[in-house]
Design a protein around this nucleic acid. Structure first.
Length: 412
DNA sequence: TGTCCACAGGAAATACGGGGGT
DNA sequence: ACCCCCGTATTTCCTGTGGACA
């Protein structure tokens, strides 16, 4: 009996959901699920809406020489995350390849994605894999060897080689090495016409390069500005058309999402994520997509971000975070001094039988937490009473509690 | 004005782990 | 089995510093 009731209820829900589905095609709410042709389709529409028009023009003129068999110089692309650098370039290079194929111009484009930071070794390793020059080594092979493998692989390719390197400045430690290889060494040792497309978040990255390498680097620069609210509206509207039943989207929702996104970061990916989250919530509540839901989704997304961040962080970082929460609870004051935090950290370590780290590293951990904006910290000089780091924890109390619980669970 | 606190944070050294080549 | 190489995490060592106080 009970079972029958339950299944009837479930069926009812299902039917209601099917009758008036807000979400027609949920794959268009999540880029990861789209197959390549669909991604290109979305891009096509975005660019047709005159978004990123100026940038595409610049790209075109930069690469125009290619069709005249010239050798364009390298290209530096700058823009914050989510401004569509990767998307635009992928799209553009795709077109370029097609065009060259039609003109019988040999071209090869490689997209090296350094989104997650790693040392020179990993970057070269990835590159070698992409070029099918070697297998993926985890360790134990010298940098020199990988370089040689890459050179050997390209030894008899004479066409254009476009190396599209995403987030170049994510190469840690020995970036010089990597850049020197790409800019000075590689072009001299292979016959291909090499064009580097270097994408970065930081405007000043070429300045941080070694002078000897930098002098070799001839670049054209393109800057991607953050999307403004109007661009975002166009982008979102396309998504809404593809993924949702637009009759169930209350007017003003798109405007609101793009306003939130553009004043926070101008990041299109996040704007789409917010749209997706709102749509899921609305669907769950069997309601149209309203402004209130957008608000709720925005705060939810924020909370999620912090929680997953802390959950996937290395244990010592989690412990440091917990220590700060402890210290804050104990002192009852807004500002926590680094010694207090460090003492609390020691106690936590004792409680969980972990060997505490030196205060030197602890300081770095705090800086890292600050970077993730889980807290605010600043260095304050108290005159003859020395200098300290003042730590302020200004997240909502409920979130702090959840973080604390998550961390303790993880450490057990 | 100079002193000097109490820590920050850079650099180098050290420890450790694990894969590849032979 | 041995050595070499590299990445990562920490420690050790050390220099730097803003401003209260005398």
């Amino acid at each position: 009996m009970q079972n029958a009731n339950v299944s009837a209820r479930i069926l009812g829900h299902l039917r209601a959901a099917v009758d008036s589905p807000l979400i027609k095609n949920r794959r268009f709410l999540d880029d990861e699920q789209l197959i390549r042709s669909e991604q290109l389709e979305v891009l096509e529409e975005i660019f047709n809406a005159n978004v990123r028009d100026a940038e595409i023009k610049e790209l075109t003129s930069h690469f125009a020489g290619l069709l005249r068999r010239d050798h364009p110089c390298h290209l530096a692309v700058w823009g914050k995350t989510g401004t569509g650098k990767t998307l635009t370039l992928t799209y553009f290079l795709n077109l370029l390849t097609q065009l060259c194929a039609a003109e019988q111009i040999p071209i090869r484009t490689v997209h090296l994605d350094l989104t997650n930071p790693g040392p020179c070794f990993r970057a070269l390793n990835d590159l070698a894999c992409l070029l099918e020059a070697s297998k993926y080594y985890r360790r134990g092979i010298s940098l020199e060897e990988i370089m040689q493998k890459i050179e050997a692989k390209l030894a008899d390719y004479h066409g254009y080689l476009v190396l599209f390197i995403d987030e170049v400045d994510n190469v840690r430690h020995d970036k010089e090495n990597f850049m020197a290889f790409l800019i000075r060494r590689l072009p001299q040792r292979i016959p291909a016409k090499l064009i580097l497309v270097l994408v970065s978040n930081h405007l000043d990255w070429p300045d941080r390069l070694d002078a000897r390498v930098k002098s070799f680097l001839k670049v054209n620069e393109i800057v991607f500005h953050p999307y403004d609210a109007v661009d975002l509206q166009r982008i979102l509207r396309i998504r809404v058309e593809k993924a949702l039943d637009s009759r169930s989207v209350i007017p003003g929702v798109i405007e609101k999402i793009s306003a939130i996104a553009s004043c926070e970061h101008g990041d299109a990916r996040k704007a789409v994520a917010l749209l997706a989250r709102s749509a899921y919530m609305a669907e769950k509540g069997h309601s149209p997509l309203t402004l209130e839901i957008v608000d709720q989704a925005a705060t939810d997304l924020e909370t999620d971000r912090y929680l997953t961040l802390i959950q996937s962080a290395p244990p010592q970082l989690q412990l440091a975070m917990a220590a700060i929460i402890e210290a804050k609870r104990r002192s009852k004051r807004t500002i926590i001094r680094s010694i207090d935090a460090y003492n609390a950290y020691h106690e936590l370590c004792r409680r969980f039988h972990t060997r505490p780290l030196t205060s030197r590293v602890f300081g770095d951990l705090i800086a890292e937490l600050d970077l993730y904006s889980l807290l605010r910290s600043r260095i304050v000089s108290r005159g003859r009473y020395g200098r300290t780091r003042e730590i302020i924890l200004n997240l909502p109390g409920e979130l702090v509690d959840r973080i604390y619980r998550v961390v303790l669970d993880n450490i057990q």
